[in-house]
Amino acid sequence: MEEDHLNHTCAFLLIGGSAGSLEVLFKLLPLLRADLPFPIALVLHRRSSADSSLSELLASKTLNPTQEVEDKEPITSGTIYLAPADYHLLIEHDHTFSLDYSEKINFSRPSIDVTFESAAEVYGPRLVGILLSGANEDGTRGLTAVKRAGGIAAVQNPDTAQMPFMPHYALTHLPVDYVFDTIQMAAFINSLA
């Protein structure tokens, strides 16, 4: 039986993406309401050279405050955080971010798995994880951890993804709760409380 997820409260929303995910975010972010009652963290595979213009570009698409994470920064509701290039992003139990420059995971730093697994430990059932377009396996282990902790797992519909591999890989490895196109994804996020 499908649970009624509308009864879930969302304390933290994670969105992970790789190749082809920026286009989705550029469409998704303007559709989100301006007073989100939870924080969002974006974990995107990007070139390792610190390219700070991405957070500015994303910020220009939303009324919600958007910024790249600094080490030990407290997590604030309503803010959209971007994982910095070339660091793994972790969540501490006191609801602050930690950064980590350890080995790449799935050829990626930041790795989506690392952030999702770490957030699942802290937020458990109040966590929502969404995987977007991408061409590698990163994210599936993380999304599995979100599910196992009682949270909600969603993916972009692979048919609408520029690179369907990443959401498709998740769909074939775990019981994903929702498969969305961009419009459905926005409506879902706006309905979370």
Binding site: L90, E92, H93, S98, S102, S118, E121, V122
Partner: peptide, 9 residues
């Protein structure tokens, strides 16, 4: 030490 990272290690 930052616990999240240490635990992962």
């Amino acid at each position: 030490y930052s616990r999240a990272s240490l635990k992962r290690r």
